[in-house]
Design a binder for these strands. Structure first.
Length: 420
RNA sequence: GUGACCGUAGCUCAGCUGGUCAGAGCACCGGGCUGUGGCCCCGGGGAUCGUGGGUUCGAAUCCCACCGGUCACCCCA
């Protein structure tokens, strides 16, 4: 049997319905916040991700679906959405649009990781980006937006963690100081942290090992290195949140797996999700647009992981719509009528089901019942001869005769009977 | 990439000290009710027992490898 590729999952009707409902909640709120949807390709040049996410990140080093196209260029299935949005922003000169420019996109992302709860190789994100807004107010607005979307999906019990990564000016001395600190303790750190110390020292602070965390208690904190501008930005960001009653938890250890972030970063976690408890995460990336060749443009964004959101969602009722009428034809001639009736009635906007397989009346009624059809039109040879069909109400069990002159007339009478 | 646990019908599982062991419930289809659903009763279809090796007279049952699933590490949405 050919099975789905590892980490790639089918969404069966019941799940697809919930996903759809979640997306609808997100779109609704995003439009209210003034965002416009853009749709982007799933495939980009590998170089785009290498340059934006960072060469030395796990994503780029070992998690991308990269292949060489027939014409010899290296392409990659997008592991995240921001790079593509920024690429489109630059490519289409969107910087000429009124600022701030608020965009969102929803779709699949691909990362070759070992699947587990809340982590698939093809997963979906609601990705939200704002270009041309430099101040902390927008950062706070996005946090509020993310929380509102998640809650609209029925997610409760969320924890908001924030931190500031500073800007290149203040991060550089911090990085050096941290690196010196790590090197001094080299032999007491785990293997991973020794590696991180050289490649990406910030990441060491996020280590899960108790032994390492003990060492890091004395580690220099970025907060102490923040420049005046970054310090003020972060203060204002938190103040905005507190003013609307959102309580951010300051987490100086919070870092990002993507190198492009500056200043504000935040994560929204949900207990109960297991090890992968981040449902949404984002931050500011003021340097990325220019780094990719666009005009100097401040930007902030975040992404919600659909699958994780799904796990904590409590969808309110959205049952599939049941048929208003089930036509139960008996015999070849009746089936031809049923086909035509269904065709006409559906065009009139009625939800109609019928059967083409020539099943017994008993089977047809069973099917109608299973579909939760409201009524059944029984149309057999006898009814055709007498020009009188039977319309049965499935909940009461009552059935009434429905006399007719011809097919068109029958369709009209059914419509009247059901609509009025 | 590493580790632990798991892998029998579409689903949930029983069988597993090797010898009618290929079963049950649900679901599906049909019959009882020659043209009337939901309940009940009866019947039917559907499984190379994850795959491939090995041990044995004999393996779903024991061993090995691989594949897949789950969770954790890692990483992240």
């Amino acid at each position: 049997m050919i099975k789905a590729v590892r980490g790639f999952k089918d969404l069966l009707p019941e799940e697809a319905r919930v996903f759809h409902w979640l997306e609808a909640r997100a779109r609704e709120i995003l439009l209210r916040y003034g965002f416009s949807e853009i749709r982007l390709p799933v495939l980009e040049r590998t170089e785009l991700f290498a340059r934006s996410i960072g060469e030395a990140t796990d994503i780029v080093e070992k998690e991308m679906y990269t292949f060489v196209d027939r014409n010899g260029e290296s392409l990659t299935l997008r592991p995240e959405a921001t790079a593509g949005v920024v690429r489109a922003f630059i490519e289409h000169g969107l910087h000429t649009r009124p600022k701030p420019l608020k965009l969102f996109t929803i779709g699949p992302m691909f990362r070759h990781e070992r699947p587990q709860k809340g982590r698939l190789r093809q997963f979906h994100q609601v990705d939200v980006e704002v270009f041309g807004a430099a101040s902390a107010g927008m950062d706070a607005e996005l946090v509020a937006l993310a929380l509102e979307i998640l809650e609209a999906g029925g997610a409760g019990d969320l924890r908001l963690e924030v931190n500031s990564l500073g800007c290149p000016t203040c991060r550089k001395p911090y990085r050096e100081s941290l690196q010196a600190f790590l090197r001094a303790r080299r032999d007491r750190l785990c293997e991973d942290c020794r590696r991180r110390a050289e490649r990406n020292p910030l990441r060491a602070l996020d280590c899960k090992r108790e032994e390492c965390q003990v060492e890091y208690r004395e580690a220099p904190e970025l907060t102490a290195f923040l420049c005046e501008g970054c310090r003020e930005h972060h203060r204002a960001f938190k103040a905005y949140l507190e003013e609307v009653g959102l309580a951010p938890v300051e987490n100086p250890r919070l870092v990002r797996g993507l190198d492009y972030y500056t200043r504000t970063i935040f994560e929204i976690k949900a207990p109960g999700l297991g090890a992968q408890d981040t449902v949404a995460a984002g931050g500011r990336y003021d340097g990325l647009v220019s780094a990719l060749g666009g005009p100097e443009t401040p930007a902030v964004g975040f992404a919600i992981g659909m699958e994780r959101w799904f796990l904590i969602a409590r969808p309110s009722e959205s049952p599939g719509l049941s048929p208003e009428l089930f036509i139960a034809p008996l015999g070849e001639e009746a089936r031809r009528w049923a086909f035509q009736l269904a065709f006409r009635l559906r065009k009139k906007g009625l939800r109609v089901e019928t059967d083409h397989e020539g099943r017994s009346l008993k089977a047809l009624l069973r099917q109608a019942n299973r579909l939760s059809a409201q009524r059944v039109l029984i149309l057999g040879e006898e009814e055709l001869r007498k020009k009188q069909a039977l319309l049965k109400d499935l909940s009461s069990g009552r059935q009434i005769p429905l006399p007719f002159r011809d097919l068109r007339d029958l369709a009209n009478r059914i419509l009247i009977e059901i609509r009025f």
